[in-house]
Design a protein around this nucleic acid. Structure first.
Length: 353
DNA sequence: CACGGCCCTGCTCC
DNA sequence: AGGAGCAGGGCCG
């Protein structure tokens, strides 16, 4: 099937590599990872608001293909019932390891985490999870790069996925490195801290012009502060710290409160007990888990902690993942119901634009 | 400490 | 047509 013609492409690519090696240093690689499709819902995992760099490849008739950038590489992903197939373009950084990208993708999607087994455990822990168990989707918590995660979630406040994606796309094309040209678009890496620091003086003005709004200042200041704190080494240290310690550090950055800090702890610092409490989760907590909060108007820091601790007490060390599954599954159902009613007008407006 | 007002922009609703 | 209201928060008073 497709792989036959693709192997030709691979060979051609390798033949050309020596010629433009010093200008491009790009490698193309394809592989597959054994993973049951019931253990990995790419749609909700990649497009559900954790990362903002993935989209469906339109025009893929037989199989849905997802394309996106992660860890400085451009990926295309498809699934069959038993396998995840990938094509990746990236700078392999001298690693001639055949399974370098296998490991990278496994890490990104946390494929070592046995979701099925954990879901079965979570079902025993609270009737709410048990009730929803038939509707639950295989949402996986990503293991992302901290800088991308931090800047993306500073953008996320008072915002929606579509606009966040546009903003991040702009940031990458402005300060990232070009990986290549795919499906008639130039594709860029997420900017390095160094690249952003280098443009520190112009950063806020540029972001303002690019319509980041009041988030422009937060990003510019956070970049400076992350650099001051030690950049990559600071990130590594945040992974080693306890969850609470890591969050205490993160909220030192402007534009980062408890909720965003918890998203970062969960999605790029390997603190899976972190439970981000947004307005939606707050309402679920009020109606299902903590009825005593039904008269509470706003999520104050104290209330925030109370709710998050409650989720951790119920669901344990992976409480953040539990919440992600609940949140995405409920949200998807909500959107599907809404989408059936409104799809005609929505489609029209999208096409106009 | 809790609360309300405010922040940029873009979209939806009316 | 065009303004209010709001979106998966955070900061400041």
């Amino acid at each position: 099937m497709l792989s036959v013609s693709f192997k030709c492409v691979v060979r051609l690519q390798f033949a050309i590599v020596p010629i433009y090696y010093y200008t491009k240093r790009m490698h193309i690689h394809q592989g597959q990872i054994a993973v049951n499709e019931k253990e990995l819902n790419l749609d909700l995992t990649l497009l559900g608001g954790q990362s903002f760099r993935w989209e469906k490849l339109d025009g893929s008739e037989c199989k849905t293909t997802y394309k996106g950038v992660a860890y400085n590489a451009y990926w295309e992903l498809t699934q069959d019932p038993k396998n995840l197939h990938y094509t990746v373009h990236g700078d392999s950084k001298g690693s001639s390891d055949a399974d370098f990208y296998d490991k990278l993708l496994k890490r990104y999607l946390r494929l070592d985490f046995d979701l099925n087994e954990n879901v079965n455990e979570w079902r025993k822990l609270h009737p709410h999870f048990e009730e929803l168990s038939t509707k639950l989707k295989a949402v996986r918590v990503l293991d992302q790069e901290p800088l991308e995660n931090i800047l993306s979630f500073i953008c996320s406040q008072n915002n929606n996925i579509k606009r966040i994606s546009t903003m991040i796309e702009w940031l990458c094309s402005k300060y990232g490195n070009k990986i290549g040209h795919f499906h008639s678009k130039d594709v860029y890496t997420f900017p390095s801290l160094e690249s952003l620091v280098e443009h520190q003086d112009e950063l806020e003005v540029q972001l303002r012009q690019a319509k980041f709004g009041y988030r422009a200042k937060f990003i510019a200041q956070s970049v400076a502060k992350i650099n001051e704190f030690g950049g990559t080494k600071w990130f590594e240290n945040l992974r080693k710290l306890s969850y609470h310690e890591a969050r205490t550090e993160l909220v030192k950055l402007p534009g980062i409160g408890f909720k965003v800090a918890d998203c970062i702890c969960l999605m790029s610092l390997n603190h899976l007990e972190s439970v981000p409490i947004d307005t939606h989760i707050f309402k679920i907590a009020q109606s299902v888990y903590m009825p005593q909060l039904k008269n509470v108007k706003a999520v104050t820091p104290k209330i925030y902690e109370e709710i998050a601790e409650n989720f951790r007490n119920i669901y344990g060390p992976y409480a953040g993942w539990t919440q992600a599954v609940l949140f995405c599954s409920e949200l998807q159902q909500f959107q599907t119901e809404k989408g059936v009613e409104k799809s005609p007008s929505k489609t029209n407006k999208k096409r106009k634009k």
